[in-house]
Amino acid sequence: MDTKSIMIVGVGGQGSLLASRIIGHVLLMQGYEVKVSEVHGMSQRGGSVVTYVKYGDKVYSPVVEKGEADLIVSFEQLEAARSLPYLKKGGTIITSTQKLDPMPVITGATKYPEDIFNQFRDLGINFIPVNALQLAEEAGSAKASNVVLMGVVSTKMDIDKEEWLKAIEECVPAKFLELNKKAFELGRECY
């Protein structure tokens, strides 16, 4: 099969590294060649964070470029808007409805764009808004938004639920496993 590209975007501290690890694991279990590319360090301090997951029979470059992502998973609205140029024609965006003001908005230097989802609609973008924060809090912790989104992602990929749960078990510390399983289920049920 052709190489597929997934991009995970969010704000430093939202848990995008865990999300990419779960996806990477589950794809590896399906026998694909997988590459996951992360950026650590400076970008993690509340800045925009981008992670790439690529899989297929053969994967060369670990990075995803503009116009190449089959799927974008976003933890925050503005980051979804920022990542749009990376979406392949016909690709899908799954995005949390959460909004986090970046510092230039906090200081009043600029405004947070109000109508991101409307603009997506006008452009005919295939996108799925998810109230991930609320569902995560329902599961027991706001921090589990990432795994709620994995629940939604799992409904869009042709991989058994059991496989996803196995991958979550491998990637999440034991004491948070139940919480994350619940978050995953809530994500699955919402779509």
Binding site: S48, K66, E79, L87, K89, P104, V105, P113, Q119, I125
Partner: peptide, 12 residues
């Protein structure tokens, strides 16, 4: 690729 017309604030 497609991009929004709106200016997107940076997130340093």
């Amino acid at each position: 690729y497609t991009a929004l017309q709106t200016e997107i604030p940076v997130r340093p």
